[in-house]
């Protein structure tokens, strides 16, 4: 049952990322809902499931169309899942700022890997511009991540019993 639910949600996220994310494009930069999905999946289901899902989802994402660097999405998403795995069942054991810092740094690293490969020329010619592109890509996805916190906070995702 749990497996079916995960497959169903994965298909919805992939469907949304492939078909509708284009309408959210700002100056060739688009939000990456896949990284958001992978972090949630890892925090809910653990590192192993997270890495497997990250690899499959990344591969499908690259199959849907990428100019060069086919295989970059599974690589960066697998790393994201691996690092997010440190947060599995850890909300109560870690200080909140440490917990939140880890997922923020993880997303930051994901976008660094993507930007480093895709904007090598900018990296070599203008470091400031490169950092700007990296932070803009990161910031745009982070906005959606923050919005997501209102509907389904990471605290709840990490199986914390919320006292009322």
């Amino acid at each position: 049952m749990q497996k079916n639910k995960l497959v169903f949600i994965t298909l919805i996220v992939l469907f949304f990322q492939i078909l509708f994310v284009e309408s959210l494009t700002i100056n060739t930069i688009r939000p990456d809902f896949l990284v958001l999905f992978i972090i949630y999946t890892t925090i809910i289901n653990g590192r192993l499931v997270g890495i497997i899902m990250a690899f499959i989802v990344g591969l499908i994402s690259d199959f849907s169309g990428v100019g060069s660097y086919f295989g970059l999405s599974p690589l960066s998403l697998s790393i994201t899942a691996y690092l997010s795995g440190f947060l599995y069942l850890k909300y109560e054991r870690l200080l909140p700022y440490v917990f939140h810092s880890i997922w923020v740094i993880t997303i930051l690293l994901h976008f660094y890997i993507i930007s480093y490969f895709r904007f090598q020329t900018v990296y070599l010619s203008d470091k400031t511009e490169f950092i700007l592109i990296w932070l803009m890509s990161f910031g745009y996805t982070l906005i959606f991540f923050i919005i997501m916190q209102y509907f389904f906070p990471l605290r709840e995702a990490s199986h914390v019993k919320i006292s009322k």
Partner: peptide, 25 residues
């Protein structure tokens, strides 16, 4: 197993990245 799967995923991803021009790909 999770470290092993991660290692496998990275190896596979890198092999895809390095074989971008392969006719099979």
């Amino acid at each position: 197993k999770d470290h092993f799967v991660f290692f496998l995923a990275v190896i596979l991803s890198l092999s895809f990245l390095l074989r971008n021009d392969s006719p099979n790909i």
